[in-house]
Design a protein around this nucleic acid. Structure first.
Length: 578
RNA sequence: GCGGCUGUGGUCUAGCGGUUAUGACAUGAGCUUCCCAAGCUCGUAACCCGGGUUCGAUUCCCGGCAGCCGCACCA
């Protein structure tokens, strides 16, 4: 049994997660989170909010999970998010149609399905497996389609990423942030992709949770004001060049930017924050690296993209996070389709002064004289240059193919000096995009430990404090009224203080410790006869299995200190000798 | 989607054309002043779904679903 199996089995058995719809046989690509899993997921999401909403000051929004057709026309998901497929008529093998003609056509993506099929016929392309005839080419779109309202007039699609919700709300977000760059918006929520063949449990789902941030920045300046805070962090980078050499390099964030390995400070800054976040939720540092997308796998809109990848036992290196510079691709696409202006006015450091020729046709005279033609004549006059204006005699302009003469005194002009304070530009977007389900699985796998204690295997989930689905368990040594009564008081006190607290009287104390080890409960509080006689309780540490005794009154303070890591367990109370 | 293998209580598993379908662990109730999966008593709980063959199918056959492996796919 490998680690993947051990972890998924534990997750199923103890209530973290399991395949959905089991009652009816199931459907691949969907998972349920159970009581512990839902809690753990929430804690991961809250930790993420701590990093991006609280510490970066980004705004969290919540957009619909169903999008209308125009959004995905603009984003490119409608055309680009589908793959052209073809099927062998003999052996029923399915192929990516464009892959079969790669050696003939340089950019097969540009062809329509019919054109690809034509290429098959012109070049005698048959099934690579059995040589059979290939079917016509059809599109398989990875978006789930639905209808909005009755009838089929108004198509809707389940969103394949949360990002678009931020892009299409750009004008309101810009206003919310008082019209100035940089600013960021985030969204945590479900996204949907109708994968052809989902495998690997929770790693490839048809419905999954994303946490995405879209950081809108000034395209002319991709430095980051807080870069100093992260520049000395050492990370394992697997750059494009490194991948060609098969070599992962350790270097500081600052060095990576200086050497041009990471494109710019802002991208590097979020790569570094991603690194910190993943460790803060319990991803093992020594099984984490950042891999740069190779030029050919980079999405068409991205300028640079780095994936956080983790090493998993059965699955190898798996992508958890993508940090991409999406440039102005998305805003420009939405601008083109919606006709809305998705720009920002950016002030120059210094206003620019420049001379400008202002031409004022005398409309009072031109209007009555030329009637309907007047407007066109005025426009023609305005486009004259200084030389033409300064000439002698009547001015001749071409309007609707005929030449019209206008007296020179009907056009006044002057050079004025104007001050330009800034310009409208389309922001660039830096996108850190997190797959929450994959992170959750990784945290479970990287926290999983097995050890032998007195010839018995002990399974421990070494989750970090505050990431656990249960903070503390209250355990009466025995299920007797004289012990359960004070235990219940302690339970209530801990719950009132806001801790996720479990209460368990069933089975022997050792068995209950093991149960809690398996779900990662960091501390167990045991109530025994000394609690009655001396007013003390025992706190037991998950990782060391050591115990200390503390006064009942001090319990709340001690537990809170232990859980936020300001209190060392060794100093938390009177050690109990094993 | 294709091919191969697999599907029995919560978990791991035995087994068979006719049984009251094993066993272990887990779990529930109880007993035991019991700090690391202790012991004892008594419980709860399963043949993936649908068709076919048969007097009778959990067992054989076909289809579906799911899992694993390989291929393809993974913006």
């Amino acid at each position: 049994m490998d680690r993947y199996e051990q972890v998924t089995e534990l997750a199923r058995r103890r209530g973290f997660m399991w395949p959905a719809f089991e009652l009816y046989g199931g459907a691949a690509g969907f998972y349920d989170y159970g009581p512990l899993g839902a809690q753990l997921k929430r804690r991961i999401e809250d930790a993420w909010r701590g990093f991006f909403v609280i510490r970066e000051g980004f705004a969290e929004i919540e957009a619909p999970t169903i999008g209308i057709e125009d959004i995905f026309k603009a984003s490119g998901h409608l055309s680009g998010f589908s793959d052209p497929l073809t099927e062998c008529k003999e052996c029923k093998e399915i192929y990516r149609a464009d892959h079969l003609i790669k050696h003939i056509i340089e950019v097969p993506d540009a062809l329509s399905d019919e054109e690809i099929y034509q290429v098959f016929q012109d070049n005698d392309i048959f099934c690579p497996e059995c040589g059979g005839d290939l079917s016509t080419v059809y599109e398989f779109n990875l978006m789930f389609k639905t209808a909005i309202g009755p009838g089929n007039k108004h198509a809707g699609y389940l969103r394949p990423e949360t990002a678009q919700g931020m892009f299409i709300n750009y004008p309101r977000l810009l206003r919310y942030f008082r019209g100035a760059l940089p600013f960021g918006a985030v969204q945590i929520g479900k996204s949907y992709r109708n994968e052809i063949s989902p495998r690997q449990g929770v790693i490839r789902l048809r419905e999954f949770t994303q946490a995405e941030a879209e950081v809108f920045i000034d395209p002319r300046d991709k430095t980051h004001p807080r870069f100093d805070e992260v520049k000395d962090i050492v990370m394992r980078l697997y750059s494009q060049a490194g991948q060609e050499r098969g070599e992962v390099e350790e270097m500081t964030v600052g060095e990576a930017v200086e050497k041009g390995i990471i494109a710019h400070q802002t991208l590097a800054y979020y790569v570094a924050r991603t690194y910190q976040f993943l460790q803060a939720v319990g991803v093992a540092r020594d099984r984490l690296r950042f891999r740069q997308h190779k030029a050919d796998e980079m999405a068409h809109y991205a300028a640079d993209c780095w994936d956080a990848e983790v090493l998993l036992d059965r699955l190898g290196w798996i992508e958890l996070v993508g940090v991409a510079d999406r440039t102005d691709y998305d805003l420009k696409s939405h601008m083109a389709l919606s006709q809305a202006r998705l720009t920002v006015f950016v002030n120059y450091d210094q206003p620019v002064r420049r001379e400008k020729l202002v031409i004022k046709p005398d409309m009072k005279s031109l209007g009555p004289r030329f009637k309907g033609q007047a407007k066109a004549i005025a426009e023609a006059l305005k486009s004259l240059d200084m030389k033409e204006l300064k000439g002698e005699g009547p001015i001749a302009v071409q309007v609707d193919g005929e030449t019209v003469e206008v007296e020179r005194e009907l056009v006044s002009f002057e050079m004025v000096e104007e001050e330009i304070r800034g310009e409208e530009l389309v922001p660039h977007v830096i996108e850190p995009s997190f797959g929450i389900d994959r992170i959750l699985y990784t945290v479970l796998e990287h926290s999983y430990y097995e050890e032998m204690v007195e010839e018995e295997p002990r399974i421990v989930l070494r989750l970090l404090p505050r990431m656990t689905p249960v903070d503390v368990a209250v355990l009466p040594l025995m299920d007797r009224p004289e012990l359960t009564a004070p235990a219940r008081e302690i339970l209530e006190a801990l719950r009132s203080a806001g801790y996720l607290t479990d209460y368990d009287t069933s089975g022997s104390i050792g068995r209950r410790y093991r149960r809690n080890d398996e779900i990662g409960t960091p501390y167990c509080v045991t109530v025994d006869y000394e609690t009655i006689e001396q007013g003390t309780v025992t706190i037991r540490d998950r990782d060391s299995m050591r115990q200390v005794k503390v006064k009942k009154e001090d319990l709340l303070g001690t537990v809170s200190g232990l859980l936020c890591c300001t209190q060392r367990f060794e100093d938390a109370g009177v050690a109990v000798s094993p």
